[in-house]
Computed example of a mutant assay.
Amino acid sequence: MVGKLLVRGMLAGIAAGLLTFGFARVVGEPQVEQAISFEEKAAVASGDAHEHDELVSRGTQAGLGLLTGVVTYGAAFGGLFSLVFAYAYGRAGTLSARALSAWLALGAFIAVVIVPNIKYPANPPSVGDPETIGARTGLFFLMIAVSLTAMVFSLKVRRREVMKLGAWNGSIVAGVVFIVIIGAVQLSMPTINEVPGGFPAVLLWKFRVAAIGMQVIMWTTIGLLFGAMVERSRLLDAGGRAAAKSVYL
């Protein structure tokens, strides 16, 4: 049963990747092209311009490369999403498959996308020092790990507080705990600001909106499509729910 859920999660992720690719081509790639053009013009103005051979052409990067990247990302996270769903189903009260899938997708979007991007937002190609890319990437993934850990902890707090204060107040307490933890961690982590002084603010804003938009499409599609696929397949009846639990007990 878990294997069938995994397949459906990956299929939902592939579909999400295809939709995300379409959005990225139409909305995201024009911002990338403008950023590259800005970088080239700045290099010419400073006298640092020089010709170099591209290992991968821009056409390939914006076409097949982008398609491969987002579809692989979608399939991988769709598979992981299905495993989390299999663990959570039956443990999250009386939520239906669709409702649980939607809530899990929202939680993943907050923890994996919103929280790390508040501290370390996406930058176009011409922004950032190549020598610091390793440090920036490490900090970004560290922020994701902290965010996921804080969310799991806050859910445990919610479970305990619901018994004392009720569902509504318990949820508020858990939300406050999550925000306090994330706020404290983000204030303690180093800030990285490598945006050139002359870089167009509107272009930077549009690029970051496009980057968030891609993630909105990705996680919305996974959450809604996976839930619909599971519910229609009738994999999770009373017996299926017990089977999902037994895998992890």
Results as ranks from 00 to 15, higher is better:
residue 130 P to H: 05
residue 55 L to T: 14
residue 89 Y to R: 13
residue 247 V to K: 10
residue 111 A to D: 01
residue 225 L to V: 13
residue 25 R to P: 02
residue 219 W to F: 13
residue 36 I to A: 09
residue 144 I to E: 00
residue 222 I to Q: 01
residue 115 V to A: 08
residue 10 M to V: 15
residue 248 Y to G: 02
residue 29 E to M: 09
residue 4 K to M: 00
residue 248 Y to P: 01
residue 216 V to H: 04
residue 127 V to M: 07
residue 89 Y to W: 04
residue 69 G to I: 06
residue 73 Y to F: 10
residue 188 S to R: 10
residue 104 L to T: 11
residue 15 A to E: 01
residue 16 A to V: 11
residue 118 I to M: 14
residue 12 A to T: 13
residue 198 G to S: 12
residue 75 A to P: 03
residue 232 R to D: 06
residue 237 D to S: 09
residue 146 V to F: 14
residue 194 E to L: 08
residue 240 G to A: 02
residue 152 V to M: 14
residue 35 A to G: 08
residue 236 L to D: 05
residue 211 A to Q: 09
residue 217 I to L: 00
residue 197 G to R: 08
residue 160 R to N: 12
residue 88 A to P: 01
residue 206 K to I: 02
residue 69 G to L: 02
residue 240 G to W: 00
residue 165 L to I: 08
residue 124 P to Q: 06
residue 43 A to S: 11
residue 67 L to S: 01
residue 142 L to C: 05
residue 186 Q to R: 13
residue 225 L to S: 04
residue 177 V to W: 06
residue 167 A to N: 08
residue 210 A to F: 06
residue 223 G to N: 09
residue 81 F to D: 02
residue 237 D to I: 03
residue 16 A to I: 07
residue 167 A to Q: 06
residue 177 V to E: 05
residue 29 E to H: 05
residue 220 T to S: 15
residue 150 A to G: 11
residue 66 L to C: 00
residue 14 I to N: 00
residue 15 A to C: 11
residue 42 A to R: 11
residue 175 G to W: 14
residue 189 M to I: 15
residue 87 Y to G: 04
residue 37 S to T: 11
residue 223 G to E: 00
residue 100 L to M: 01
residue 207 F to Y: 14
residue 194 E to K: 07
residue 85 F to G: 14
residue 88 A to Y: 01
residue 91 R to S: 02
residue 223 G to S: 09
residue 208 R to K: 15
residue 3 G to D: 03
residue 171 S to L: 13
residue 96 S to P: 06
